[in-house]
């Protein structure tokens, strides 16, 4: 009995979640589709590096170093950052809108950012991340605007208007694909499917500043999210200006998400279901669940991506996987509506 209480407190504390990423990242470094370097050879070259004195001249070792640092590590970091960011943004948005059915994808941020990024790729008018952020924010603003004042009372309004806005930007994206030249078209199509396999250090570096800025901002607001999640009037009642804080959180979440979309394309529904998983594990207090979302979101996307690049001969775009996982969760939550969850 006593032991059980300690166990459950340990689970609720959420510290264990931080123990997941490290071995996972190390393990993912060993796995890859590369026939050039199977796991056994990888380990043996590590071993020889440790035992022999002139390992730097060993061709096997330098090949391994190239694969690990240039190919795999960049991809692992990109995947982890994207997964963590989508989960944290999704969790923040669910709290702000008091709506368990939203995430950056459903609110149109992802489609808006994708359109913005494609526009920048096709016409090179402004830098890709800037354009992605601009249109991502425009999209979420449109979703809120069309959902109207009723959105605080009905979760469905916001979901519907988000879907429509998402549809508009997806259609616009198709238009861009039609009018852009074949060479650029290929780049755009590859990336909209939600691909992580084109990861480079350049992409990671590009992602780093907006993601770190967005996530540390959201992390600061982790307790304020609890206040906002109780509702507008309840926040005003205790002297908080909910509109101003919501706007700031929305900007931070959009900033981080848009950067992820610009780097990795649309990864559907991931930001919807990870926050629910985390809430089940550590509870709804955002002070605990926000950091847990980063660790678990990053780890989870890394598992999905590692599986997708090692299980099959060809790579399935990761957005397809996350849609298969997220859609049932969404439908299940919709069913649960009657049980008082919303």
């Amino acid at each position: 009995m006593e032991k059980k209480a300690i166990n459950s407190r340990w689970i609720k504390s959420g510290f264990w979640i931080w123990l997941i990423p490290i071995p996972l990242i190390l393990a993912s470094l060993l796995v890859g589709p590369s026939d050039v370097m199977p796991v056994s050879q990888f380990i043996s070259s590590c071993w020889s590096a440790l035992t022999s004195s002139n390992f730097q001249s060993d061709p096997d070792f330098s090949l391994m170093l190239t694969i690990v640092t240039d190919v795999r590590l960049s991809r692992i970091l990109l995947t982890f950052l994207v997964g963590g960011t989508l989960a944290v943004s999704g969790s923040s948005l669910q709290a702000v809108f008091r709506n368990p059915l939203v995430d950056p994808f459903i609110l149109g941020i992802a489609s808006g950012a994708a359109f913005g990024a494609a526009l920048a790729l096709a016409f090179s008018w402004i830098p890709v991340p800037v354009s992605a952020f601009g249109f991502g924010f425009l999209a979420v603003w449109m979703s809120i605007h069309f959902a109207g004042k009723e959105a605080e009372h009905s979760s469905v309004n916001l979901v519907l208007s988000g879907m429509m806005v998402s549809g508009i930007f997806t259609a616009l994206l198709t238009v861009i694909q039609f009018v852009s030249d074949p060479f650029r078209l290929q780049t755009i199509i590859h990336w909209t499917m939600g691909n992580l396999h084109q990861a480079t250090w350049t992409k990671v570096n590009l992602l780093l500043i907006p993601v770190v800025a967005g996530l540390s901002g959201l992390f600061l607001f982790r307790w304020r999210l609890n206040v906002l999640a109780l509702g507008n009037e309840e926040a005003k009642a205790v002297g908080v200006n909910p509109e101003r804080e919501k706007l700031m959180i929305l900007i931070l979440a959009t900033l981080a998400t848009a950067a992820c979309v610009a780097a990795a394309g649309i990864i559907a529904m991931f930001g919807l279901f990870v926050p629910h998983l985390v809430r089940m594990l550590v509870g709804p207090d955002n002070r605990k669940s926000l950091p847990a979302n980063f660790a678990l979101g990053g780890s989870f996307l890394l598992i999905i991506d590692t599986a997708s690049r090692s299980l099959f001969q060809f790579e399935i775009p990761i957005g397809v996987f996350t849609m298969f996982l997220g859609a049932p969760v969404f439908l299940w939550l919709m069913k649960k509506k009657s049980s008082g969850w919303m």
Binding site: R98, N99, N226, A229, L230, E234, A237
Partner: peptide, 14 residues
Amino acid sequence: GFLPQFHRAVFPFS
């Protein structure tokens, strides 16, 4: 300080 008449909870906060 203001205590509203109705409150609809969404998340199971303690």
